[in-house]
Amino acid sequence: MWKWQKEFVRQQDITGELFGRYIDDILMTWNKSEQQLTELLHEANQWHPNIKLDYRISQNLPFLDVLLTNNNGILQTSVYHKPTTEPYVVPFTSDHHPYIYANMIQTALARAVRYSSTFEAFNQEKRQIKLMFLYNGYSSSYIEDQFHKYFLGYINEAAFIPVVTEMTQFFLLRQKMLAQPTARQTQVARSIAAAAAANTTDEPSEDLTTITHENVVHSRDRSFIHYTHEKRFRQFKRDMHQLYQNVFQNTPAIAVKMVVGNRNRPDNTKELVHKRPKQFLLSNKYKKIKHLKVKKRHRQVRKRSK
């Protein structure tokens, strides 16, 4: 199969066609007859009995979460939604930190900008995003506020209302965003740089030693406190800082800066399904079942005695 793919990719490069693959999903363009393409794919299915290609030929096809359309020879892209996808996200009334809600809206909007090659596709996806979050309890003003905050990072700050209302603004916004690496690309680049630095020399440089020493000293001047986030603890950070000031105001400990952070509350599904349930849950359930079995046995004995 690798030999067939290598030869096929070489032919695609010669003819200027597109060929992409992600694990077991393949996308390709073809400008010859459909019969020739069918014969080629049929030949590929004969290479190995355990490797079969399930293909679909059309001018409108999804690839992962991108919908590609051949519009009179022009390749257009948009966000692809599976027919079985439900419009559910984290409800606005759930007990999560506020940045979770903002990140979900801005992430969905970033995907719409990256995947939409036309202004019409972007507007359609933007409407779907707003309807989805409205369905999950988000207010219209909150959604629009997150839209404005997102556009503010790419549109001229002098604009009174940072919104995308024209095709030119959209393409400028998309060009700026596509020029920036994604979070995954940044992570891979850092891993490669770290591996390259580790392979060049085993001795740490002077700059690295200095930075590490500064980080250690910087960490010693801080005290970190974490708590599980709940809505009833909204004033917890302010109360902790006030208490710290009152107790250590005239002591050397006041020079240590206290940092109060929070963690998200683990979901019940994660606690009871993905992780091993706590022992008291199992024991209570076991005792209850055992008690019912004992009752049934007593009833059977009574019936036999009668």
Results as ranks from 00 to 15, higher is better:
Trp2Val: 12
Trp2Asp: 14
Gln5Phe: 08
Gln5Ile: 10
Phe8Asn: 10
Phe8Trp: 11
Val9Asn: 09
Arg10Trp: 15
Gln11Gly: 08
Asp13His: 10
Arg21Ala: 06
Tyr22Asn: 01
Ile23Cys: 04
Asp24Thr: 01
Asn31Ser: 12
Asn31Tyr: 06
Asn31Met: 03
Lys32Trp: 04
Ser33Phe: 03
Ser33Ile: 01
Gln35Val: 15
Gln35Glu: 13
Glu39Ile: 05
Glu43His: 08
Trp47Gly: 10
Lys52Ile: 05
Tyr55Thr: 05
Arg56Asp: 13
Asn60Leu: 09
Phe63Asn: 03
Leu64Phe: 01
Asp65Thr: 01
Asn70Val: 00
Gly73Ser: 00
Leu75Asn: 03
Gln76Cys: 06
Thr77Arg: 11
Val79Cys: 02
Tyr80His: 03
His81Trp: 04
Lys82Arg: 04
Thr84Glu: 13
Thr85Gly: 11
Thr85Cys: 12
Glu86Arg: 06
Glu86Ala: 07
Pro87Ala: 02
Pro87Ile: 03
Val89Phe: 02
Val89Arg: 01
Phe92Glu: 04
Asp95Glu: 12
Ile100Trp: 07
Ile100Gln: 09
Ala102Lys: 01
Ile105Gly: 03
Thr107Val: 05
Ala108Gly: 05
Val113Gln: 02
Val113Leu: 00
Ser117His: 00
Thr118Lys: 03
Ala121Lys: 01
Ala121Met: 00
Asn123Ser: 08
Gln124Cys: 07
Lys126Trp: 03
Lys126Asn: 00
Lys130Met: 04
Tyr135Pro: 06
Ile143Tyr: 02
Ile143Glu: 02
Glu144Trp: 03
Asp145His: 14
Asp145Gln: 14
Gln146Leu: 02
Phe147Ala: 01
Tyr154Met: 05
Asn156Ser: 11
Ala158Gln: 14
Phe160Leu: 09
Ile161Val: 13
Val164Asp: 01
Thr168Lys: 11
Thr168Ser: 12
Phe170Tyr: 06
Gln175Arg: 14
Met177Tyr: 02
Leu178Ile: 09
Gln180Arg: 08
Gln180Trp: 07
Pro181Asp: 04
Pro181Glu: 00
Thr186Asp: 12
Ala189Glu: 00
Arg190Ile: 09
Ser191Met: 15
Ser191Leu: 11
Ala193Lys: 07
Ala196Glu: 15
Ala197Val: 08
Glu203Ala: 11
Leu208Glu: 07
Leu208Trp: 08
Thr209Gly: 12
Asn215Leu: 13
Val216Arg: 14
Ser219Leu: 13
Ser219Ala: 13
Asp221Tyr: 11
Ser223Gly: 12
Tyr227Ile: 04
Tyr227Lys: 03
Tyr227Met: 00
His229Pro: 09
Glu230Thr: 10
Phe233Asn: 09
Arg238Gln: 15
Asp239Ser: 11
Met240Thr: 06
Gln242Pro: 02
Tyr244Ser: 04
Asn246Tyr: 13
Val247Glu: 07
Asn250Thr: 14
Pro252Gly: 03
Ile254Ser: 13
Ala255Cys: 15
Met258Lys: 05
Asn262Ile: 09
Arg263Asn: 08
Asn264Leu: 09
Asp267Arg: 13
Thr269Val: 12
Leu272Ile: 14
Val273Gln: 05
Val273Thr: 06
Lys275Val: 04
Leu282Val: 10
Ser283His: 14
Ser283Pro: 11
Lys287Arg: 12
Lys288Gln: 15
Lys293Glu: 09
Arg297Phe: 08
Arg297Asn: 08
Arg299Val: 15
Lys303Met: 13
